[in-house]
């Protein structure tokens, strides 16, 4: 880390003000109607919170994105009008390490082999100011076993660590350095004592017990071997086929493209991208009416295999970051940790 400094907690609001006047829209965790969400911050923000209910992937990948508008007058060539994303610069404060690592995986999908201008336009205008987890924010956390860490700065522009009275701010990117430089005088030098305390907090966080995928490294091979296993249908038995697991997930990125009509004569409307969901029955429905993933077991297999096998085959890393949302929020208790462990057990 090139830039490591201390920030008095009382000065957080001044820093946010400085970032705001630098042209950034600052977002931070807010409790609204009983759920934590990232909301635009007016003055200051309390970073003492567990984690947001829904992963912050929508900053770069909103649930609804308009691609272009069209109009087709009979007998004439269809007219298209490109719609560029309105992407203000957003600095998101309080992103947890699992979600930072989620952003890295989303980048792979939308920037590695493809060029998705909508995503990239939004992504380059988004900065993540992460917050290390001194203690696991939820009993369903399992980031360590999937290669992450509660203090990881992967995907972050800055990582904050709470040391009680102060934060340690560690810049991880040029953008992060610039955000700190914007209010240079607010930050203090990190002394040896601070460093020692930081290392201790980080070491304790890493040592805190978590649930675990038993053999994450072996998961891609195990899932490949267990593709036809009967355990999929068995484990999916209580599944209700809703979209909670995927919509809350920091790395689920499947989408659907539809034309939303605004007029019928002439034909007029817009083409929009919306999140889609491999657990819905129409996700793989063919135009013929055939559905290759008709059962809930095949859909559960798809989601778990995407996280722990296919993504690994494509990008060399597990897609799951262990945030535990799909585990804690599943209405019927389907548990991705238990599922991966069970499949591995069956093929062993």
């Amino acid at each position: 880390m090139s830039m490591e400094k201390t920030l008095d907690k009382a000065l957080l609001s001044d820093w946010i003000a400085a970032v705001t006047s630098g042209g950034w829209q600052v977002h931070g965790p807010a409790l609204e109607d009983g759920i934590w969400t990232f909301k635009p911050v007016a003055a200051s923000v309390d970073l003492d919170y567990p984690n947001v209910k829904q992963a912050p992937k929508d900053f770069a990948f909103p649930q609804r994105e308009i691609f272009f508008a069209f109009e087709h007058i009979k007998g004439e060539a269809p007219r298209l009008k490109e719609v560029k994303p309105e992407a203000p610069q957003c600095a998101v404060f309080g992103v947890r390490p699992c979600d930072g690592r989620g952003a890295v995986r989303m980048d792979k999908v939308f920037s590695d082999n493809v060029n998705d201008p909508y995503y990239q336009e939004r992504r380059k205008n988004t900065a993540y100011v992460g917050l290390a987890c001194n203690a696991p924010p939820s009993p369903t956390c399992f980031c360590k076993s999937v290669g992450g860490s509660p203090v990881s700065s992967e995907g972050m522009d800055i990582l904050l660590t709470d040391l009680g009275e102060i934060y340690i701010a560690q810049a991880a990117t040029k953008t992060g350095e610039a955000l700190m430089a914007a209010a240079d005088k607010l930050f203090g030098k990190m002394g040896a004592a601070d460093k020692k305390q930081l290392d201790k907090v980080h070491a304790d966080a890493v040592a805190a017990p978590q649930r675990a995928v038993k053999d994450a490294k072996g998961a891609p091979a195990a899932l490949k071997a267990g593709f036809d296993s009967a355990v999929w249908e068995e484990m999916a038995k209580p599944c209700i086929g809703c979209g909670i697991c995927t919509f809350l997930c920091p790395t689920c990125h499947c989408f659907d493209i539809n034309d939303e009509m605004t007029g019928m004569s002439p034909l007029k409307g817009q083409r929009v991208r919306t999140w889609d969901n491999c657990q819905f029955p129409d996700f793989t429905m063919h135009t013929s009416g055939h559905n290759p993933r008709e059962t809930l077991g095949t859909r559960l297999r798809q989601r778990v295999s995407h996280k722990f096998r296919y993504f690994h085959e494509n990008f060399g890393m597990l897609q799951c970051t262990g945030c535990g949302r799909c585990v804690s929020e599943c209405p019927v208790g389907i548990d991705i940790v238990a599922v991966v462990n069970k499949v591995a057990e069956h093929v062993a």
Partner: peptide, 14 residues
Amino acid sequence: QFDRCIRCFACRSV
């Protein structure tokens, strides 16, 4: 409430 809905359809599915 309507603005917040993410249309995961858990209400329908359950």
